[in-house]
Simulated assay, not measured.
Amino acid sequence: MKIIVSGRGYPEKRNIIVNEQHTYLDFRYKNIWLYINKIRQKLARANKMFIFWPFRFLMPADTQIIHLFNEVAQTRQRWVATFETELPRVLPVPGVPKLANPELRKALKLVAAPQCVAIVAMSEAARQIQLKLLEAFPAEAAAIIPKMHKLHPPQPVLYNGPRRIADKKLIFTFVGNEFYRKGGAEVVLAFSELAEEGLINAESVEVNITGDLNNRYNFAHGNFQDDASFYREIEALLARHPLFTHAKSRPNSEMIALFKRAHVGLLPSWQDTYGFSVLEMQACGCPVISTNVRALPEINPDAAGWTIVCPLNEMFELTVTSVEEKLALRHLIVTQLKGHVRAILKDRDALLSRSANAVQRIETHHNPARFKESLDAIYALAR
């Protein structure tokens, strides 16, 4: 099958470019909207539009389908789109309510058009967010809802057999390039407090942290970002406690090796649309402690990991409307993270059972062969 894609980035590789029997044609630089957006943004300071409009004369006659990620298509060719939040993706306009944005309705008509044969939500959270959006557009909803599917990304199992704890030392691991958004600061605070309370030390616990400390902006905090003194505190704690090992980044092969060696993964994230690192850790037999934002409770259920339960808004995300609210949420995350770590230290059998269940859920819910079959069944709708 010949499939046109609009890029070969990480999302496409994880959700679209997955079948070696298909031919994928990258039309990123053959998308008219790529150039329209550059002109609009430079001359009119207008928002980027997430629309794919291919140069028709460049499209091979035997193209079977277009498969996009977070974009909608303006074309006569049949197309499919995978999305992580909602479709269409339209950036906010200051002073204009979201549902009153004319660009939203215009792009929504493309999704409702017969050329769109399917839209694929990456999670149940994304499916629910899409349904909520469509409540405001009943005419378009009637055409879109029947062609909506849910398909979690594929993930091969990377570890065989149950996790063993030969040594008394437990190894925890955190990875997040966007260190503060992914909850890296809360990891440092929680383990530092446990060490200062005398509950852990470098002989009993090792915490491997991978993340760029210079990536300080936290999208979830909005107008209430942390200040320089907070960042200095986190860096000082990292340097003070020998149980921490920090690296700005690691090659993927090194990260996978670390996941296979670690006993528990950490993702106390403030904001995440999915959580691919959770899948990779689980596939290595490393159960994860995560928050409950967006898709995380779907891919990290209690039987396979541990959940930090936070209050969520209608978008399944954290809401920060003041410094006080941010600090209260941070206290909640740190307190629950510490509680889970203490429980793991006391009951290692629970860790072992979750390790086995984590691998099993990857095999059951993210099997690459079944994912390919499901995607091909969606493509068949274009015939």
Results as ranks from 00 to 15, higher is better:
I3E: 06
G7T: 06
E12R: 09
I17H: 03
I17A: 01
V18L: 10
V18C: 10
N19M: 03
N19S: 11
L25S: 04
R28L: 13
K30R: 14
N31P: 09
W33D: 09
Q41G: 08
K42W: 12
K42H: 11
N47A: 09
F50I: 02
I51E: 03
F57R: 15
Q64W: 07
I65N: 04
L68A: 07
N70D: 13
Q74T: 06
R76S: 14
R89M: 11
V90H: 01
V96F: 00
A100Y: 09
N101C: 07
P102S: 03
L104C: 05
A107G: 11
A107F: 01
I119N: 04
A126I: 08
Q128A: 14
Q130F: 03
L131F: 06
L131H: 11
L133K: 14
E135W: 02
A136G: 05
A139C: 08
A141L: 08
P153Y: 00
R164N: 11
I165G: 06
K182L: 05
K182H: 02
A185C: 04
V187I: 09
L189D: 12
A190W: 00
L194W: 01
E196W: 02
A202K: 14
E203R: 12
S204M: 08
I209N: 04
T210S: 11
R216T: 13
N218H: 00
Q225S: 01
D226W: 12
F230I: 11
E235W: 01
L238Q: 03
R240I: 04
H241K: 11
L243K: 06
A247D: 13
K248N: 10
S253W: 09
L258E: 14
H263Q: 05
S269Y: 07
W270F: 11
D272E: 15
V278T: 09
L279S: 03
Q282S: 08
T291C: 03
V293I: 04
L296A: 05
N313L: 01
F316H: 12
E317F: 00
T321P: 02
E324F: 00
R330M: 12
H331K: 15
L332M: 10
V334A: 03
Q336E: 09
H340D: 06
S355C: 04
A358L: 04
H365V: 05
A369R: 14
R370C: 08
I378W: 02
I378S: 04
Y379I: 09
L381F: 05
L381C: 08
